[in-house]
């Protein structure tokens, strides 16, 4: 859906995985940007009907970009800054308590 504008200036990068696939992007970006950079429109499926959802507001309001980060569920991808080695995975349906 999106591409990044090319830049001539040096940029420090980090590498994360999105659904197991490595993605390299500038330090300081969010997990939601990593989804976008990976070309992944869907970050989760809903607990009620299983409908696919992806980032909608990008500013922490809508909670539609919830994903699993390093195994922890219900992380707001747009509010989570990426770190080297971060594992971003799709969140499927409802969470289990403690899961």
């Amino acid at each position: 859906m999106f591409r990044r504008l090319e830049t001539a200036s040096p940029v420090e990068t980090v590498t994360v995985t999105v659904g197991g696939k490595p993605v390299t992007l500038p330090r300081g970006e969010t997990a939601a940007a990593a989804l976008v950079a990976a070309g992944e429109a869907t970050g989760r499926t809903t607990p009620i009907t299983g409908a696919p959802r992806g980032p909608y507001c990008m500013m922490g309001v809508c909670f539609d970009c919830l994903v699993m980060i390093d195994g922890a569920p219900n992380r707001q991808a747009c509010m989570t800054e990426i770190r080297d080695g971060m594992r971003i995975e799709r969140q499927v349906g409802a969470r289990r308590i403690g899961g």
């Binding site: 999106f2 591409r3 940007a33 429109a41 992806g54 909608y56 990008m58």
Partner: peptide
């Protein structure tokens, strides 16, 4: 998925040049 707000798209532009 693939439907966002204009503001969300602008945040992607501001923060990552998307």
């Amino acid at each position: 998925p693939g439907v966002m707000t204009v503001g969300a798209a602008q945040i992607l532009l501001k923060t990552g040049g998307y």
